[in-house]
Amino acid sequence: MHWIDPDCLPEVKGTVERFLLNPHGEIDGFVMSGETQAPVLVHTPPQMEAELTRHVKAGDVVSVRGVRPRKADLIAAVAVTTTNGASVIDREPDHDREHPTLEKRKMSAEGTVRLSLFGPKGDLRGALLADDTVIRIGPKEAEQVAKLLAPNARIAVRGDGIETKHGRVVNAKEIGTGSGDLRPIKEAKPKPKHEAKPKFDQAAHTCGGER
């Protein structure tokens, strides 16, 4: 069971528009029409997929209890409850769980960004296009192309894609403003480790250089 009690968290109600896919083709959230005009981005852990799709489908009204990261307009869901009372709860990561072996193929996409997509801690991870295509980029690489992932930006990508009954996702390897403007996404270099400074040997550095 999740260490956070969902009953202690604020509740947001809305209608599920569509599910979102991660680079492995797993559902890791959905877009929800809230009480206002703006859509609500909800993140759900991939291990909730089977239970979530068993109880929830597009067009359903649900209640979401979760936390909001400081850096993004997002709800990281701990529990999703349907109108008939079924609750889908995050029961902590299953570290032994394997990703599905879905067929990947070369895929491209181009269009206008509808929503920026974020991880549960608010890190930028891609975009949802107006045609419902999901674009995924690693969080460190996404920071380098953040302007192309912002709402209303024009974007084109090429990479490895997966298509399921819940939509399609492109794990971008090249990106630009149009198909004729694609450039490779540079992988973020790991930060260099700081070497330990040699300890000062006071005995070897006495006045006059004598011991």
Rank of each mutant, 00 (worst) to 15 (best):
H43Y: 15
D73M: 03
D73E: 08
T44V: 15
R70N: 00
P39I: 02
V67Q: 08
V61L: 00
A76T: 08
D73T: 09
G25C: 10
R68T: 08
V61G: 02
V67F: 03
I27R: 10
V67N: 03
A72K: 12
V61N: 00
A38S: 10
A76Y: 01
V61W: 01
H24I: 01
I27G: 11
P39G: 05
D28I: 02
Q47V: 13
V61E: 07
A72I: 10
P39M: 04
P46W: 04
H43Q: 06
R70W: 00
E51H: 15
E49D: 15
V56R: 12
K71N: 05
R68Q: 06
V42D: 05
A58D: 08
M48L: 14
A50I: 08
V31L: 15
E49C: 07
M48G: 12
A58R: 09
M48S: 14
I75R: 09
V61Y: 00
G34Q: 09
K71I: 05
S33E: 15
E35D: 10
R68V: 07
V67C: 02
E35W: 06
A77W: 11
L74H: 13
K57L: 03
P45D: 13
A38C: 01
G29I: 10
G34P: 08
G59P: 04
Q37H: 11
G66E: 00
A38Q: 08
I75D: 01
K71G: 05
S63T: 14
T44C: 12
E26M: 10
A77H: 12
G59W: 02
A72P: 01
K57Q: 15
M32H: 07
